[in-house]
Design a protein around this nucleic acid. Structure first.
Lengths: 213, 213
DNA sequence: TGACTTTCGTTTATCGATAATTTATTCTTG
DNA sequence: CAAGAATAAATTATCGATAAACGAAAGTCA
C-alpha cells in the first residue's frame, strides 16, 4: 500500500471510503485516528481530515472528544431518498430534453451495457450502468446546483444496497429505462420528466415493501 | 475575542462564516491559515479544519498547496437554486399537509412577523421570517433526507443576497405566503405543493430578470 | 531580447508531542 | 452492597516545528 501520488488526506479518504462501501468497516464501527494513522504510517493529522471529509459526506458521524463511527444508513433513510430523487430528476429530465436535442446515444449505450451485465449476471455492473443512465440525464440538464444536490444523495452507494434486495428480472430492469430514453429522443421534456419521476418513485416503493421482509 | 466555550474549530468556523456572510471577506479573498491562526492566537490546525468545513459547505474553495479563497456565488448559481427548491419544497408541502393536521399556528406567526418587519422597514428580519416559513414546511414533512438537502442549499445566505434586488412591496411579499398556509390548514397537500412550487418559481424568475439589470 | 533555469519567499501539508476530555475502573463510605 | 468520588486508560483536540510545493523574481545563455 504505497501512498505517494495525491495528498495523503485524499488517499486515506478514498481507502476508508472503499472500506466503508465494501462493508469492511461495518456501521457503528469506531474509526480511531491514531490507529488508522499507524496502519498507514502517517501522523494523526491527515487521518483526522479524512474523517472530517467523510463526515461531511455523510458516511461517518463523530462527536467531539468521542471520535468517529461508521454511520448506519437506516432503511428509512434509504426510502426517504427516493421522493427527493424523483422530484429533482423530473426537473433534470425536463431541462435535459431541450439540451440533448435528441442525442441520446450515450443513454442508449448505458441500456445496452445493462443488458450485457444482465447476461453476465454481474449485478454490480448492472447497478453502475443504471446509476450512470440517471447521472447522464442529471448532467445534461445544465443546472450545476441540481447536479451537486443529486451527487450529495450518493445514489451509487445507496442503490447498491437496495437493488440487491429487489427481485426484478435484470433485462426487464434495463428495459424500464427505454420509455424515458424515447421521450428524451423525441425532445418531450414534460413527458420524460413524468416518466423518470414515476420510474424513481416505483423503486422507492419497492424499497418500502422490502422493509417488511 | 475570547475563544473558550466550544471547540476552537467550531468557533473559528462560525467567525469566519459570519465574516463571509456579512461581506467582511469578499469573494476571491484569500484565507491564509497561519495568518488567521495568528489573529485568533491558535495554531494552524483548527483553522485548517474550519476552512475544510467551510469548503464542504460551499462557502470557500481551495486548491492543494495554493490555499483557500472565498467562493464567489454567481448570479447563475443563485438562479439555479430555485428550480431545485421548487421541486423539493413541493414534495415537502404535500407531506407536510398530512403531518401538520391543520396546525398552522407557527406558520401564521411567521407571516405576522414578516408584517411587523415590514412595518419596521427591517429587511433582514423580513428575509429571516420568510425563510423560516419555508423551513417550517420543510421540517414538517418528516423526510430527513429532504431536510438535509434543503439545508445544503443554504437558502438563508442566498435569499439575503437576492431579495435586496427585488422590488416587491414588503406587506405584499408577506401575504404571498397566505394561500400556501390556507391550503396546509385545509390539509390539501397537492394544492399546497402546487402553490409553494409556483411561489418559489416566481422568485426564481425575479432573480433571472434582475440578472439583466 | 526572450525563453529557460535557478533561487527565494510564502503558504500549505504533514509530523511528533502535549493538553484536554471522555469512559471505564477502582476505591471509598455509608 | 450500592452510590459516589477519585483515579487510570484511551482517545481526541491542539500545539509548535519541519518538509513539501508553489509562484514570483532574479539570473543565464542562445
Amino acid at each position: 500500500m504505497t501512498l505517494t501520488r495525491k495528498s495523503l488526506r485524499q488517499q486515506i479518504k478514498e481507502i476508508l471510503l472503499t472500506r466503508i462501501l465494501q462493508g469492511e468497516y461495518r456501521p457503528g464501527d469506531r474509526l480511531i485516528e491514531l490507529q488508522i494513522a499507524q496502519e498507514f504510517g502517517t501522523s494523526q493529522a491527515p487521518v483526522r481530515e479524512s474523517l472530517r471529509e467523510l463526515e461531511a459526506l455523510g458516511f461517518v458521524e463523530s462527536v467531539p472528544y468521542r471520535g468517529a463511527r461508521v454511520r448506519a444508513v437506516s432503511q428509512q433513510e434509504l426510502a426517504e431518498v427516493y421522493p427527493v430523487r424523483a422530484a429533482i430528476e423530473e426537473v433534470a429530465a425536463r431541462a435535459a430534453a431541450a439540451n440533448l436535442a435528441g442525442e441520446v446515444g450515450a443513454l442508449e449505450a448505458e441500456i445496452a451495457a445493462m443488458h450485457r451485465a444482465a447476461d453476465d449476471g454481474d449485478l454490480y455492473a448492472q447497478v453502475c450502468h443504471d446509476v450512470a443512465f440517471h447521472r447522464l440525464i442529471v448532467e445534461a440538464c445544465g443546472n450545476r446546483v441540481l447536479q451537486e444536490v443529486w451527487r450529495s444523495l450518493r445514489i451509487e452507494a445507496r442503490t447498491l444496497i437496495s437493488v440487491v434486495k429487489t427481485e426484478i428480472e435484470p433485462h426487464h430492469l434495463a428495459e424500464m429505462h427505454r420509455p424515458i430514453l424515447e421521450a428524451l429522443r423525441a425532445g418531450d421534456g414534460p413527458l420524460a420528466g413524468r416518466l423518470l419521476r414515476q420510474h424513481v418513485e416505483f423503486f422507492g416503493e419497492l424499497v418500502l415493501k422490502g422493509e417488511h421482509a
